[in-house]
Nucleic acid binder design. Structure first.
Length: 731
RNA sequence: GGGCGAUUAGCUCAGUUGGUUAGAGCAAUUGUUUUACACACAAUAGGCCGGGGGUUCGAAUCCUCCAUCGCCCACCA
């Protein structure tokens, strides 16, 4: 027995070496000829999963740690079943997140913005930063024990993924699923970019709700929380059934120098969607700065006057009086005018949802802009459908594909309550704005000359300066990492992937977009199952964040308690989709468990030194019962593993090992191990070896480091076989 | 406004299709320095399973209403 077994288990001394051993073995790469656990499993049976690529914006956080723990359990379990198992690593350039982080850093150090540096120099800086982040993340991922095939590592912004992005764009453009249009978009004045609908968050706040008339001879009062936008009104909409206003419908009013600013032409129009009860039952329509008003304006052919610009300042369209004013200043000025002229009827406080940017929390300005969109309703013909229930030749829209994938059960979401959430999102889905006015990302593969557009680079033509939404490239992730658009062996073998495991917070951002992309480009699903984990919270139930300084740093926890302990703490007692509370205490408890395994192994090793592994042992009835009992439990645990109930399987293993094997079985064998009856002793020795071996195997997906370390030093393993590819016990 | 989730021991959570005396970890109390392990062992205590009503031979589990907390979605200007 190695001397290290005389001391408590030291994770720090062990983990790096064990990871190196695994890497050297080459078994992170899927191989043929690995042992098969079960005759039911065919040799060519495949388990594949892509790692949700962490953003290259810094360090690994607890969310990544829980993701790595769950996925590594799945991967190691399936590898031990004998399946051809692949887990593809990678990182995400995370366009806007990374760019703004680097911009902030540069500004702090050098007081320069990106325009001072210029596009080329700025991108050089971002790439440097991304490279550093990447190295840190990869290093930390290895510390978690993740058995990823590093030879297939990808980056959403590397050359190959770039090819995939351009090909995807081209194919979607040719199918008219991507179009460029002047439309109202969500604009973040601080990020200086558009955002997709999903990137807009809502924050409830108290707001002043003003009721007023445009002028003293205007017949209808309207209400708003944003008086300054009224400088761009072109209509007032009322419900067609509203008796109060029916007589005005179709009339046009001119207001000279509204609020001392522009002349307004207000047409009274009818719209079914107007609520008779709310406010005055009449809505001032500002087509350029409200999504709904824009739609109403389209229906009624109203002019669209842009009175707020990209810097959240009033434009010339609102007249010289207002031009250049900030929104707040303009609001005050308008209100002053309304009050001074007796037009303001009342002022009340209401609860209002403010739209804010998910990155920087500044208020979003809806404004019209020329941008690229993905059309989610446009029909196209399926050419070679592998989608369940949708036939080749059939006309479908992206929306229908997304919905069908889950409805047809071709994709199963765990826990299933998120299926409802997913449908609801699709029902409310509008066209996806994919162009971003930032520099870090995939530049839109379109070239212009005068009015002409080309999808190929041409001399003297200018490329669109904008970049694509980061989720456009991550939407391709399951197949861009496997070589698409080339029809590679990897793509044929490993796609669709078996499972997509990620946090429920990116169900829309990512999971849905992957189904969209794969649905159109491959006419197939990207994965068969979606396993959603919850968010990690602190003792007080708060979301972990840097600003609250309550985040458990996974790397710190690994240093302190070991990766195995951290993994167990993140798995046990945490069902899918449920938020997790992680405390230092919990991690510590599993460090103790690791030590328990260590000590039990020492006991087994030191009490079986004279055991002959070649000799056949007669097993006595007491021991047969132990084995039967263990098999029963394993049956249960295997069922849990197959049903993605790792939290149950882990707990059962923990309980069996500690409170059955260590506390009871080992205690009971102590006397027999000292017995002079040779049969008695041999049978007891055989039993504790058998149980330990079995437990090491089944615990391995959960606690890979310590189990492998023990296995490497086990007396039965003279050839130094690797536990990672042992067979999962047959039951 | 719509939807979802949670509510079980002091704390954090399990409890699979309804089935005996409701489980685990941590914390607590009392012992035990018995050579695998004090990062331990043995034992103890602790629960109207959020509240009301219902279905059932039987409910933490199914139905219904209510309460509190949390989350997501949505174009009430």
């Amino acid at each position: 027995m190695d001397e290290k077994f005389l001391k408590p288990y030291d994770s720090k001394e062990t983990e790096n070496n064990i990871y190196k051993l695994w890497e050297k073995s080459g078994f992170f790469r899927p191989k043929d000829g690995q042992p098969l656990a079960d005759s039911k499993i065919k040799k060519e049976e495949v388990f594949s999963i892509v790692l949700p690529p962490p953003n290259v914006t810094g360090n690994l956080h607890t969310g990544h740690a829980i993701m790595l723990a769950i996925e590594d359990i799945m991967v190691r379990y399936n590898r031990m079943l004998g399946k051809k198992t692949l887990w593809v690593p990678g990182t995400d350039h995370a366009a806007i997140a990374t760019q703004s982080k680097v911009e902030k850093e540069i500004y702090k150090k050098e007081k320069k913005n990106r325009h001072d540096l210029g596009r080329e120099e700025f991108l050089k800086r971002v790439n440097e930063y991304a490279k550093n982040s990447h190295d840190t993340i990869v290093n930390q991922t290895k510390k978690m024990g993740a058995s990823l095939d590093w030879s297939r590592e990808a980056f959403t912004l590397d050359e190959e993924r770039g090819k995939a992005v351009n090909e995807a764009f081209l194919q979607m453009y040719n199918a008219e699923l991507i179009y460029r249009k002047h439309r109202i978009v969500n604009w973040c004045p601080k990020c200086q970019s558009t955002l997709s609908d999903d990137e807009v968050e809502h924050e409830e706040q108290k707001a002043k709700f003003y009721t007023f008339k445009y002028s003293s001879d205007f017949p209808i009062y309207i209400s708003t929380t944003r008086p300054e936008t009224k400088l761009g009104d072109t209509a007032v909409a009322v419900n067609p059934n509203d008796k109060r206003y029916k007589k005005y419908i179709g009339q046009e009013f001119e207001i000279k120098k509204f609020a001392g600013g522009p002349d307004l032409k207000i047409k009274i129009i009818a719209d079914e969607n107007i609520d008779l009860e709310f406010g005055t039952g009449a809505v001032g329509i500002t087509p350029a700065h409200s999504h709904i008003d824009y739609e109403i304006a389209q229906k009624n052919n109203l002019p669209i006057i842009k009175i707020i610009d990209e810097y959240a300042k009033i434009t010339n369209e609102a007249g010289t009086e207002y031009s250049g004013l900030k929104i707040k200043e303009a609001r005050e000025k308008v209100l002053e005018y309304l009050k001074a002229n007796g037009l303001l009827e009342k002022e009340e406080e209401i609860n209002n949802n403010l739209s804010i940017c998910y990155r920087c929390n500044s208020p979003i300005e809806p404004l019209p802009s020329l941008q690229w969109f993905v059309d989610v309703n446009k029909k196209f013909k399926l050419k070679n459908s592998k989608l369940k229930g949708l036939k080749t030749g059939q006309d479908v829209s992206l929306k229908e594909i997304m919905k069908n994938a889950v409805e047809s059960k071709q994709i199963e979401i765990i826990p299933d309550r998120f299926e409802k959430v997913y449908y609801h999102w699709i029902d409310n889905l509008r066209d996806w704005c994919i162009s971003r006015q930032i520099w870090y990302g995939h530049q839109i593969p379109v070239w212009y000359k005068e009015e002409k557009i080309s999808l190929e680079e041409k001399k003297g033509w200018e490329q669109d300066p904008d970049t694509l939404d980061t989720w456009f490239s991550s939407g391709l992730w399951t197949f861009s990492t496997l070589g698409w658009p080339n029809n590679t062996e990897d793509l044929k073998t490993f796609h669709p992937t078996s499972v997509l495991e990620t946090g429920y917070d990116i169900l829309f951002f990512w999971v849905a977009r992957m189904i969209l992309m794969s649905g159109f480009l491959l006419e197939d699903v990207p994965f068969k199952k979606v396993y959603l984990h919850g968010l990690v919270r602190d003792e007080k139930g708060r979301k972990m964040s840097k600003s609250l300084d309550n985040a458990i740093d996974p790397i710190g926890a690994i240093e302190k308690y070991g990766a195995d302990a951290l993994r167990m703490a993140m798995i046990i007692g945490v069902g899918p989709g449920n938020d997790t509370v992680i405390t230092d205490e919990k991690i510590k408890a599993y460090k103790h468990f690791a030590n328990k395994i260590w000590n039990a192994s020492r006991f087994v090793f030191s009490n079986t030194e004279d055991f002959d592994y070649e000799e056949k042992t007669e097993i006595l009835d007491t021991d047969k019962k132990y084995v039967d009992e263990l098999n029963e439990i394993l049956k249960d645990i295997t069922k849990d593993m197959n049903g993605f109930k790792f939290y149950l399987a882990g707990e059962k293993l923990y309980h069996y090992f500690w409170h059955r094997f260590a506390d009871v079985i080992i205690e009971e064998t102590k006397l027999r191990l000292k017995s002079t009856d040779k049969k008695e002793k041999l049978s007891a020795q055989w039993t504790i070896i058998y149980i330990l071996k079995t437990c090491l195997k089944t615990l391995h997906p959960f606690m890979p480091f310590i189990t492998e370390e023990i296995w490497q030093n086990a007396p039965w393993n003279k050839n130094k076989e690797i536990l990672m590819i042992e067979k999962w016990p047959k039951i």
